[in-house]
Simulated assay, not measured.
Amino acid sequence: MNARERGILAGGIALGLPLVLAVATAWVLHNFERVERRIPLPPGGEAAADPLYALRRTLEADGRPVAGHDGLQPAALVGNPRDTVLLLGDPARVDAAAAGQLLAWVSRGGHLVLRTPPRGGDPGAVPLLAALGLRQGLRAPRCEPLRVPRQPDHVEFCRGRRFVPDAARPPQLRWGQEGHGLAWARWRHGRGHVDLLADMDFLGNGPLREVPHQALARQVLAPNYGRGTVHLVRMSERLPPWLELLRRGWMVWLPLLLLLGAGLWRHGQRFGPWLPAPVAARRSLLEHVQASGELLYRRGHHELLHAALREAFLARLRRREPALHALAGAERAAALAARLQLPPQLVREALQRPGDRQEFHARMRTLVQMRNRL
């Protein structure tokens, strides 16, 4: 390709590329439309660690005083009889002394919200449940339909164990079927109220976005709503710090562990040698002879190798042609040339000591040829 053709090609590319880009842009703008989408991201920070974060923020936005607590401390919760205490966790972890303080506070007008133990068992062994008159064993989970006007139908309490109230102490409000157990009940206790639910999944950060769950949460908190502070108590079992670090900090410790393993492998003791195992000794005489010849050749002892091959040729000549071997000098060279059909000068030079490496190669080839023809 000459300079003129290269110039035409470059000009065509310079003119055609913007045209191709303009056509492609017009096609994309004609066939596609820019649309904005809102993608909800997973919770982070406090919202990821606190399952009641959305409920607390909702109550704050509604102007209601709310406080979050890690672990049950009855002395800090039973001050105002118009408050509400919501226990998120297994009520079986509340001992008899703490249960007595909570129930005494409820009898003065407080509102206590709790759930059934997730592992079942005997409710009579749980002080808070025994105070409500529950003696029968908990029933298996069962979904309960929830219908809110102008909202899709929901089912609730699908994973919580149901309960059967004592006939001598019926609840003030109930939700569920007697044959399968109740999912939610409210008892009057002195001047206050105690609500027992099969589970509290609808109060979580994600489910609370839905209107039916908001309406259900409002009904659960109704007795003292707007009268006092809502105390949200998280009674979840905390993991040990080292186990929490393993579970949440794997993005840090896993690369460090791999780096430590690579360093130990790099600087540690090997399980095998760097060099391959030496070759086992062999007893082949021909290999030893060849190795000796290669050593002499590398060290420059060409005359020794030539003399050895010359003596081997003369020994064969003495055995096969004694008359020729008896000759000497030019007569032997001429007779050998006639006998082996080789030029006399080539035969004479082959029987003489070589000077340099080139003569060595040539005379060695001639001696091999002479030995093979003899």
Rank of each mutant, 00 (worst) to 15 (best):
L72V: 15
Q73T: 14
Q73W: 00
Q73F: 00
P74D: 08
P74S: 12
P74A: 15
A75N: 11
V78Q: 00
G79V: 12
P81S: 11
P81H: 05
R82H: 12
R82G: 13
R82F: 04
T84H: 01
V85H: 06
V85R: 01
V85T: 10
D90P: 05
D90G: 02
A92M: 05
A92E: 07
A92D: 11
A92L: 11
A92Q: 02
A92I: 00
D95C: 09
D95A: 15
A96K: 06
A96G: 10
A96T: 15
A97Y: 00
A97E: 14
A98G: 14
A98W: 01
A98Y: 02
G100Y: 04
L102T: 03
L103E: 05
A104M: 09
W105K: 05
W105I: 08
V106H: 06
S107A: 14
G110P: 00
L112A: 10
V113I: 15
V113Y: 01
V113E: 03
P117F: 04
P118S: 13
R119T: 03
R119W: 02
R119H: 06
G120E: 09
D122K: 08
D122G: 12
D122I: 13
P123M: 08
G124N: 14
A125V: 10
V126H: 02
L128T: 04
L128K: 00
L129F: 05
L129C: 10
A130R: 07
A130V: 05
G133R: 11
G133N: 13
R135F: 13
G137K: 03
L138I: 07
L138G: 07
R139H: 06
R139L: 12
P141N: 06
C143G: 14
C143E: 03
E144G: 10
P145S: 13
P145Q: 02
P145I: 11
L146S: 13
L146W: 04
R147T: 13
R147F: 05
V148A: 03
P149Q: 08
Q151Y: 00
Q151I: 00
H154I: 04
H154A: 14
H154P: 00
V155D: 04
E156Y: 00
R159I: 06
R159P: 01
R159A: 06
G160L: 01
R161Q: 09
F163E: 12
F163V: 15
V164K: 03
D166K: 01
A168D: 05
A168G: 07
Q172K: 04
Q172L: 03
Q172V: 01
L173K: 03
L173W: 01
L173S: 11
Q177N: 12
E178Q: 12
E178T: 15
E178G: 12
G179S: 10
H180W: 04
H180M: 04
H180D: 07
H180N: 06
G181F: 02
L182H: 01
W184G: 07
W184E: 06
W184I: 14
A185T: 12
R188M: 12
R188D: 06
G192M: 14
G192V: 06
V194R: 02
V194D: 10
L196Q: 13
L196K: 08
L196C: 15
L197K: 09
A198S: 14
D199K: 07
M200S: 10
M200C: 05
M200H: 04
D201H: 10
